[in-house]
Design a protein around this nucleic acid. Sequence first.
DNA 1: AATGAATGAGTTTTCATTCAT
DNA 2: TATGAATGAAAACTCATTCAT
Lengths: 184, 184, 184, 184
Amino acid sequence: MAESRKRADARRNEQSLLDAAAAAFVSDGVQVPVRDIAAKAGVGVGTIYRHFPTRADLIVAVYRHQVEACAEAGPRLLRESPGPYAALTSWIDLFADFLITKHGLAEALQSEDAAFQSLHTWFLDRLVPVCDQLVRAADSRLGAFELMYAVGNLCIGAGRDDRYDARRVVGVLLDGLRPRCATP
Amino acid sequence: MAESRKRADARRNEQSLLDAAAAAFVSDGVQVPVRDIAAKAGVGVGTIYRHFPTRADLIVAVYRHQVEACAEAGPRLLRESPGPYAALTSWIDLFADFLITKHGLAEALQSEDAAFQSLHTWFLDRLVPVCDQLVRAADSRLGAFELMYAVGNLCIGAGRDDRYDARRVVGVLLDGLRPRCATP
Amino acid sequence: MAESRKRADARRNEQSLLDAAAAAFVSDGVQVPVRDIAAKAGVGVGTIYRHFPTRADLIVAVYRHQVEACAEAGPRLLRESPGPYAALTSWIDLFADFLITKHGLAEALQSEDAAFQSLHTWFLDRLVPVCDQLVRAADSRLGAFELMYAVGNLCIGAGRDDRYDARRVVGVLLDGLRPRCATP
Amino acid sequence: MAESRKRADARRNEQSLLDAAAAAFVSDGVQVPVRDIAAKAGVGVGTIYRHFPTRADLIVAVYRHQVEACAEAGPRLLRESPGPYAALTSWIDLFADFLITKHGLAEALQSEDAAFQSLHTWFLDRLVPVCDQLVRAADSRLGAFELMYAVGNLCIGAGRDDRYDARRVVGVLLDGLRPRCATP
DNA sequence: AATGAATGAGTTTTCATTCAT
DNA sequence: TATGAATGAAAACTCATTCAT
């Protein structure tokens, strides 16, 4: 009983760590010093290292749930959408929305820092197969990796400047993929 | 005479600095340690700081000529292309090519690092008006800033993974901008 | 009854702690992280600190029995050996054997780390008087402290390199103490 | 000229660094924090790292001259001593003296820390061959490595306690190596 | 004007020790 | 009493920036 209590505490603590890390990633970028995350979370640096031995572990943990949800939406959209192209655009909208609202994530995915390698790997391993199904069904001119990479890049800096609306641009990109009417 | 000679030397020196910096930016990114640039240029770090007090000054200097050339190409393309949409795509191709071949520049333009602020400003001040002319002529759904921002982002990481072809994706984006045939 | 059972449990627990510590000292040296000892013993670090408030307490406890046995062997050897020099060499062999087989102990005895101060003290308080009897009986050129210190040092790193055989070197040192035949 | 002046300064600086490091090694052991050495030398830590990229580099530099002198004494003693055993004892005395007066060095040589690996290697590479010549000439029962290792160990902690005289103990060890008169 | 040595703040990481559960 | 999560003081190492030569 005492144990389950402690475990519950630790879990709560870990969640507050994740929340602080997520906030820090957004405001300062994923390269934010561990010490800063610890300060934001109101814990010592050692606590971070106990829970997340490497920075990649922390990042993966921060984004795990959301990536999961995104992955699970793929097959569902394919079933429920009026057509394969609609399914693809819906999923890409979802994917872009996820990245846009997780300001800082798109940047992290694009970073070449070795600390993010395992993040890239995990992210792509989980989502590319999902996207691939949609892409094949819609007979898209861009492959799953390429499309995701493009959308990921387009989401970088979303919200930084009012003149740039990532969702609109992603819409234009998807329009570029739309099956055309014949040119006379 | 001695003075003009000295000035010529200084100019030569500065040019070799710029060449070294350009090379370093390409191979190691724009965040490359100043010491590395100095070593590549065969000068002391003090010399770099004398010529370019801030990193942004150095970056602006490195890319000045190329941005100039790109800016000057705008009006010319508008005159010489078969139509405004063709002019726009030609210019965007030029712009994307510039970014893609300047590996690291797209990343720098997107970086939030304060050291790059003046780079952003200068870059946009010079090119957005040019692009704006083209965009208006072509009656594009995306504004000049937005389009340039999008293309800039799409060029990030170009060449890092064979599965991602930035030029092809930019092509798709431009297709999304193409005037449509009427829907019956 | 319940109490004596509890006390027996505690003693068993403490013994398993000592065993784990002894093993950790051997494999990783006496500076081994407390956490590692705790892990080896299958207890929390808090338990170690409860039983042994300082590292020295733990070390002393680990080696107590063996030092005791060594101390008790002194008078016995003096009684049972063919002569006092033989008794001294036998005891020193015993002492060296103890140190050599307790890989890490010789290093600990020599360490200047404050955490080991009480170990030094206890060790010498217990054994120097024993050695002193033997040394006096054998009329050795080296005093008890000096001889023990020397042998202790010679045992440092025993087993680390095949080219160094601590027992052989101790033998040579004892040879140097052997009463000489007259030089003609 | 300006260059040679600067180089002279740097050399002087490096020497003061070495002096500070030597003092720090003696008083705090060779594991002394780099920051402490820097403080002792009155320089920033960066200066230490500039001159000596790794701790081993610093240690080797601190002891280089003295090891050199010791190595060079070997052949000379072999030529000039009344006999090979006398040459060996003279050299070992020299070697022990070196270690004893460089309080902390014997400990360093015995340390298993990876940072000292190159120190061990260099030290042995330089001196074992010298000792080997002497050992072979004197037909010693102990090999060069073993004898040096033993003497090195005996010098650990020399000067820490008045009851231990490393020179006397080394003398006894050498006595143990002395050719014996026949036992009747 | 050029040099590069020196500086030291900033970051990561480890681990002894405390203390809430 | 036992646990192990949390703490935070060290320690190593890097690099932008300054400044004596």
